[in-house]
Amino acid sequence: MRLSAQQICVDYGKSRVLDDLSLTLAEGEITCLLGPNGSGKSTLLKALSGALQPVSGQVVLGDRALAQWSGKALARQLALLPQHPVAPEGLLVTELVHYGRSPHQGFWGARSREDDDIVAWALAATGLEAYGARPLSQLSGGERQRVWIALALAQQAPILLLDEPTTFLDLGHQLEVMELLTDLNRDHGLTVVMSLHDLNQAARYAHQLVVMEQGRIVAHGEPAATLTEGLLARVFRVRGQVESDPHSRQLSCRFHSSLNYTIANENG
């Protein structure tokens, strides 16, 4: 189902965080939101998930605005993994992933055979088969992140929104999460939208890049067409080079120096 923001504005108090922003997400593709701190990536994800109401404009999923979807029906279409999800430390992995089934359950939340099967599938898809009976407190950061992704999978929503899913992980676990998302996108046609700080990872794993600055989208397109040296300088204030590997056509950025810091020093 198609998810799009139509001229949305979002305010925090008196400051405008998203300014007249429009975006249509490519179905079945991985889209990475890039931009400096405070550019509005998290806010855009929250607005796209319905957690935040825009003051004007609307977010449309399928044929109607998010506000017209019931909570459960919306939860069956899109899942949001926030930056700092919390859960009781003693909770078992299987129990947490089972919570992902709640949009599909009635008031009493009786577990069906189907629920058990889907939870088992979500654990298997995230490589957590052996972890089901463990409490969260015994898991590493990377394993926890996989548990949260498993919960979103159990939700069986075709659209998955993730807010900086790799930020607190070491490089190995970062790549593990990115490859897991790539597999899920390829094998199950999941639409993945995530905010990310690492430009090289974004260039490598995303089909589409959305670059934000001060609550607006300043670039949107395939990585090769979007990630340019001019963009690095203008948006991220860094001097760098973007190179394309002639064989794999893989993009990579090399950074030289911070423009802000250089300018400040030259002036001083």
Partner: peptide, 14 residues
């Protein structure tokens, strides 16, 4: 479910 934090709870449709 409420023990999971507002954002996740909302994302689960509550």
């Amino acid at each position: 479910l409420l023990s999971l934090g507002d954002e996740v709870v909302r994302s689960l449709g509550m």
